[in-house]
Amino acid sequence: MKKTVFYRVLLLAVSILLAWNAFLLIPSAESPDAPLLDWSITPNGLTLSDGTRTFSRYTLPTDAKWEPILSYYVFDAGDTELHIKGTESYQSARIASPARDSEIIFLQATYIEAGIYVTEDGKTALDHFFETRENGSYRLARGAYYTAPIDTETALSLGQEFSEITETDVTQLALLERFSLVVYDKSGAIQWKLGDLYCFENGAVGYVDYKMLNNSHFDAEGNFSYRSGTAPVILLPSNIADTLRASAEQIEYCEPDYEYEAPATPFINFLPLFWTICIIIGYILPLILLLLGLFLPRSKKRGNPKRWYVIAVLAAIWIVLATALILILL
């Protein structure tokens, strides 16, 4: 009878082990053919959906660009698989949205031309921005990521007509220190270059307003061309020039003026966990041993007291060493 019971127990143990091994194998059997993604797009590339919201493709004015300041550029769905609606096919895509505005997103996909997609609210906001430039933020920029904010009043005053306008050789302008005047929409991701500022050697500051230029002043990429010819330069009054120079001196590598915490990598303070583990290993475990070592020798059932005293001594040394280590760390 005892033999039967032992066999049954052994069989049960082996069955549990086999079941556990089978359970461990489950993840490796998971099918890779069914990506659990919400992003989908219509075959013509005009409508994008994230499962809950729908975005329509938005055509920017030719002189505006999706070029966010580096730190504003947040990939909500880094590399993802985009489902082509009505088909079984997927294509790899990168979907980005500015941290400040999830109504406007940027899509970069394998076979669909990169572009901007907006919700109804996003479309209204962008239309309003391009019509009025309201709610935009103005910045002096040098290169892609070095910028300094300037106040709206100063920026708008540059567009006013001043009496002193000189036609200047563009090859001479190319030699001067220069800054771009850029206006970003509310999202901080769509930029519209309004003109360039030039610092002359005599201390004067000139402004080339793109509104005053015709197509011959730009290259095929839409950038101001320094190849040949002249451009009208507005010489700014000294008070505006001084303000702009002061702003130009503050140009620095752009830092976000907000804190964005990506949900995928939340900041966790591990110190409490570390100290908890220290307390468990350093005090609770040896304390149990110490108590056992001190109290069990009194129990007649538990055998040789000398053995338990050895355990108690070791536990005491354990606590002392742990305390020394913790004191050093503190």
Partner: peptide
């Protein structure tokens, strides 16, 4: 795993 996380996260500042 707990220890590695805790140590990796806390050991540098400590």
């Amino acid at each position: 795993i707990l220890g590695v996380f805790a140590t990796a996260g806390a050991i540098e500042p400590l």
